[in-house]
């Protein structure tokens, strides 16, 4: 197969960036999208040119490193699939494919298709954990957790932190990412004691980072390679309102 790639090249956050066209020749339909890029890059390197920079690591859809807009879709047109698990058989021979980095203000471009997603780390640091020191844990089976609750928490916990939700959101909102972690921890008895404080602080941090607001377009849910549900968002809304309004009106300070 052969493809024409229109790739966003940008030397750094200060550079304005531009599209450059590359030809990807003689690509096997069995190769993955990133392997196709590898091939283009290797031919660039062989000519002494700098390859197209993109984030990637595990290449099995779990580390969350890969991140690019492929022809207008975060991670490409296949649902529930990261860019690294996308295969060329899903494209038409001779197709022109446009590649862009995530475009959200809190994710500044590092180079070409690579962005800085440390905003997500800072959101987790603001409260995305259970405060338990090593060694102080009670016996694991002491607190039974109903299977449906554990399964539901797992569904939210499968988030890989790739940023596709914020990247695909017309408002640049990170609500799906934040709410997945909030719900994962808030719904479990281990995370419940800190739930209101966690919600308030993670939302505050998310706002400070400069992400936009959810207007229920639902793009995030469709773009999410782990198919995390927008239900998390409404549950987080509820927890947030509880933590910042009701708790204060009725004189408690949340559970902080």
């Amino acid at each position: 197969m052969r493809f024409t790639l229109k790739v966003w090249r940008q030397n750094g956050p200060g550079d304005s960036g531009r599209f450059v066209e590359y030809a990807a020749e003689d690509i096997s339909s069995d190769s993955s999208f990133l392997e196709m890029l590898d091939r283009v890059n290797e031919s660039l390197e062989a000519e002494g040119e700098e390859p197209i920079v993109f984030d990637h690591d595990c290449r099995e859809g779990i580390c969350g490193a890969c991140s690019m807009m492929i022809d207008g879709y975060a991670h490409g047109p296949e649902r529930g699939t990261t860019a690294c698990q996308l295969h060329m058989r899903h494209f038409k021979d001779g197709q022109t494919i446009t590649l862009e980095p995530w475009r959200v203000r809190p994710f500044p471009v590092v180079r070409d298709l690579m962005v800085d997603r440390s905003a997500f780390d800072r959101i987790i640091e603001s409260g995305g954990y259970v405060s338990v020191n090593t060694g102080s844990a009670p016996e694991a089976n002491l607190i039974p957790i109903p299977k449906d609750i554990a399964d539901d928490a797992f569904d939210s916990a499968t988030c890989i932190g790739c940023g596709a939700c914020a990247a695909s959101c017309p408002n640049g909102s990170a609500m799906l990412f934040v709410s997945a972690k909030v719900h994962h921890l808030n719904s479990l008895p281990q995370g419940e004691p800190e739930s209101l404080k966690r919600t308030a602080e993670m939302v505050m941090r998310m706002d400070e980072e400069g992400f936009g607001n959810c207007t229920n377009h639902g793009e995030c849910e469709v773009a999410c390679p782990k198919e995390i549900s927008m239900r998390n968002i409404s549950r987080m809304n509820r927890d947030f309102v509880r933590s910042s309004l009701l708790a204060r009106v009725f004189g408690s300070n949340g559970n902080s």
């Binding site: 954990y129 259970v130 554990a150 928490a153 916990a157 281990q190």
Partner: peptide, 13 residues
Amino acid sequence: IDQCVAQGVPFAR
């Protein structure tokens, strides 16, 4: 296992 459960790791149940 105790430690991870306390951290909120959603093991199968």
